[in-house]
Amino acid sequence: MKKSVFFGALTLAGLGAGVAAAGTLDDVKARGKLNCGVTTGLVGFAAPDANGKWEGFDVGVCRAVAAAVLGDATAVEFVPTTGKTRFTALASGEIDMLARNTTWTFSRDVDLKFTFVGVNYYDGQGFMVPKDLGVSSAKELDGATVCIQTGTTTELNLADFFRANNISYEPVPIETNAEAQQQYLAGACDVYTTDASGLAATRATFEDPAGHVLLPEIISKEPLGPLVRHGDNEWEDVVRWTLNALITAEELGVTSTNIADMGAAAGSNPEVNRLLGTEGNLGEMLGLPADWAKNAIMAGGNYGELFEKNIGESTSIGLARGLNAQWTDGGLIYSPPFR
């Protein structure tokens, strides 16, 4: 184990350095694997199951991108990141993209130099309290002890909310969701606050989910989306349009079950044809094969399917589409046209 690790890695690093340099897209193709940053474990969004296979909504996005670029939805290396390590991991090139329910904010975009390619989940920060506490509004939380996951925007939102309402609280900063859960269940804090989706996901794992309620207040806007490094526009386009392809597919009624038929030959709807590569050369423009979007959709289904399968109402997490319905259904999910 001694020097060989060092040496081996040095050679690999040297080889890597020789191949790299061009752009993330070429890197990924050369490597044959997509390095995708995800959370260390949030059921429904990204969590390894008992066999170590990653599953979840964010994981679905990673798999779609891998399928679009490499044609293989399993060619993904999932890199678990904490709130602390995620941005460095992306900035230093350890991962190619970050799909870790990360909020799109001004300073992350402008100051930290990342590009958010879109929004895959419109979220907001909420509060969860035990039912027997008898609290019905966040404004009644004066003097409460609040568990927060540290290193996220929720920490700042929380401070702002309580200051704006001129009530006091005591924060308990926690590193991971699992520990926050433990603290909350043990009663070491009265309230657990994080993104409403995360709260629902966490509550789903409780022994007695009905004993806990989510308060009606949503105190912040949390548009969550995948992000890449600034300045690599080609790669940025790939990730952005893969996400858009998933959204458009739902809008156009393309699902993982009917895609084989629809993609086999050009159909009557020109946009579907362009999306699935049976017409036009959108794939070529991206530097990808013509069936890139088809692969991406087949990886886990379209946006709606991913949603239903991982976090939708039929799952234990049970999130309604709400803001995340298609724009045609009164939601905010809207993809620019494929043209």
Partner: peptide, 18 residues
């Protein structure tokens, strides 16, 4: 979750400012 210098300066501040 004790707010020592590693948790404030090396933790939350590092996260929030990058």
């Amino acid at each position: 979750g004790y707010a020592d210098v590693t948790a404030t300066l090396g933790g939350i501040t590092l996260n929030q400012t990058g």
